[in-house]
Design a protein around this nucleic acid. Structure first.
Lengths: 169, 169
DNA sequence: TCCACATGGATGACATGTCAACCTTCCTCG
DNA sequence: CGAGGAAGGTTGACATGTCATCCATGTGGA
């Protein structure tokens, strides 16, 4: 192993540690302010931008990149709490529309506000536009690399295609 | 909200998506090659560097920043699989030493090798030393910011002190 | 010494995530 | 049209993570 590799791995470890801490912090702030879990937030946030607060479960799976059983379980729990409802889907009788309830919409709006405030305060203000842009570039490079990995490896491609239907790009 | 905030939040979202994909990819590669979960790997990797493959459960909690019940459950499962053993601790009869079994050590070494290869191939080679150094700096800034947040907020401080004993820095 | 309290860890109940099997509906092709 | 397979979701079993509680040991005074 080269010296570059060793220090690269050290940088990677340091990065990972901080990311974990940051995610835990943001999650705590959200839960404390709204009582919602990270999973709740992701679903509500996606539905909040959908017209009428309505989205096909399928589409939501693609947006969140979740396994279908995960989404199904989570949606079931949230429906039980009155945050959203399942309505049978017009275009495809196999599918379902997920629809925000009024309480769900309120919770979603509040959660988004809380999360954006947290991210602004902790991340954006700390890094500033320059570092943020750089971070986004770094993310784009990694995304491209992952895409290539998926192309090369049948197992990875399968995992990806389960979440991103090839037909839709 | 300023334009800077909006684009900053967009950068943050993009970053988050990629991080999630990357973590999933690395985890899949590890599991495919070794049959170990990410949690298994973290524990084995820490023990691998400990003298004699032995570490106080308490110390491991600090290294991994895990809740004590999480560690306890995970260690119980791994002991059942023969990867490590619990031995009562000499210095403090309340505590336990966690000790790698020979099979555990083999698995740990293999897992480390697999993970380092994955990270090199996917992350290090893609980003290069410059971007990596920049990423480490960014992580350091965020770590400092989180530290400050913990100082200011009693609840966060409590969460941190549960994982980092104040007495040990 | 003795007692209150802190600490290391285990445990059980529950929330969440994954995997495999299943059901229904859709699509394709003979 | 009809049969076979693909696709959208659900379900149940199990792995994992969290929370509250409990137990045993350590510690610091009165």
């Amino acid at each position: 192993m080269t010296a570059t590799t060793a220090s690269g791995l050290a940088a990677w470890r340091a990065y990972n540690t901080v990311h974990t801490q940051l995610a835990a912090h943001l999650s705590r702030e959200l839960t404390r302010a709204t009582g919602l879990s990270e999973a709740d937030y992701q679903i509500l946030d996606a539905l909040l931008d959908a017209p009428g607060g309505r989205m096909r479960a399928l589409e939501l799976r693609y947006v969140l990149q979740w396994e279908k059983s995960r989404l199904s379980h989570q949606v079931g729990r949230m429906a039980k709490r009155g945050l959203l409802t399942r309505e049978s889907c017009v275009e495809d009788a196999r599918g379902w529309d997920l629809v925000l309830t009024p309480e769900g919409r309120t919770a979603a709006a509040r959660a988004r506000q809380v999360r954006e405030e947290s991210v602004s305060r902790i991340v954006l203000d700390t890094l500033g536009p320059g570092r943020l842009a750089h971070l986004a570039e770094t993310a784009a490079l990694l995304a491209a690399r992952l895409e290539r990995a998926a192309d090369e490896d049948p197992a990875c491609r399968a995992a990806r295609d389960e979440l991103f239907p090839p037909s839709r790009g």
